[in-house]
């Protein structure tokens, strides 16, 4: 084997620790900001849902007018799920166009491109959460949480957003096209309805109740609700954190496996 020498060409230098990650995060931010429709939806959807559930359904469900205090955690998770679902489409688009091959032939951790999508989703959905809370306060939401409890709420919501975003990213890797990714992701968005998000689990039919009680969204909802309204927390916080960590672990493992298998095999 002869050695390779050249005078006019150069080799790529080794990158700093987070250069690739920060480059991909800013790429995903630009993507988020330029998708005007999605940005508009991220503000309009929480507002509409909040108003619909308090003014239209609220009085029928709870004539005393206290329904807004009950429903806020559910709306937060519903909107976060909706906002995170676009991650599946973004990831699938990267995988099905040639751009992932370019990244994979460069000396960078190509998983960093996924980190970019995840961080952008986290920030987008925390903004959407702020919109939900702002609108809720306007229509009569009266939380009694201490500052420390607010920090805990932020932590749980952020953990949930991360969990569902990683799951959507893995779905994006598994899907054969961005359209398919969108379709699969849609199914997940119905999960909050079969939980304690909008009505107490006790009001559901007997066969549905165990499912609603033991699916991951119910403990997350119960945790946020307990923190905001000073209700008894029970063991739901442990379940909430446990579910989110488990979903992240499974999604990251599944995603890494899919990424290795699919990249370079378009």
């Amino acid at each position: 084997m002869t050695t390779f020498t050249t005078t006019t060409t150069t080799t790529r230098p080794r990158l700093g620790a987070v250069t690739a990650e920060s480059t991909f995060v800013s790429r995903s931010f630009i993507h988020s900001v330029r998708d005007v429709e999605a940005l508009l939806m991220a503000v309009v959807l929480p507002t509409m849902l909040m108003l619909m559930f308090t003014w239209i359904f609220g009085n029928a469900i709870d004539p005393s007018g206290g329904y807004v205090d009950y429903v806020v955690p559910g709306i937060i998770l519903l909107c976060a799920g909706f906002g995170a679902s676009s991650t599946a489409v973004s990831v699938s688009r990267d995988m099905t166009t040639g751009i992932i091959d370019r990244f994979r032939t460069m000396p960078i951790r190509s998983g960093a491109v996924l980190t970019g999508h995840v961080v952008a989703s986290l920030v987008r959905n925390l903004v959407a959460t702020a919109v939900v809370i702002a609108v809720a306060l306007l229509v009569g939401f009266r939380p009694v949480a201490t500052p420390l409890e607010w920090v805990a709420v932020l932590g749980v919501v952020a953990l949930y957003i991360l969990a569902i975003t990683y799951l959507f990213a893995a779905i994006g890797l598994a899907a054969s096209s961005p359209e398919a990714a969108n379709g699969y992701g849609f199914i997940l968005l119905f999960l909050p309805y079969v939980s304690s998000a909008f009505v107490p689990v006790e009001t559901m039919p007997d066969w549905l109740r165990p499912i609603a009680e033991h699916q991951p969204i119910t403990p997350v909802i119960e945790t946020i609700r307990a923190l905001l309204m000073d209700a008894p927390l029970g063991d739901s916080a442990w379940w909430a954190v446990g579910w989110c960590v488990a979903i992240i672990a499974i999604s990251v493992g599944w995603g890494a496996w899919l990424f290795r298998r699919k990249a370079g095999r378009r």
């Binding site: 390779f4 080799t11 790529r12 080794r14 040639g98 091959d101 370019r102 032939t105 460069m106 000396p107």
Partner: peptide, 8 residues
């Protein structure tokens, strides 16, 4: 990878 570029 430090020495190549690909246009696919």
């Amino acid at each position: 990878q430090r020495r190549i570029a690909l246009t696919g």
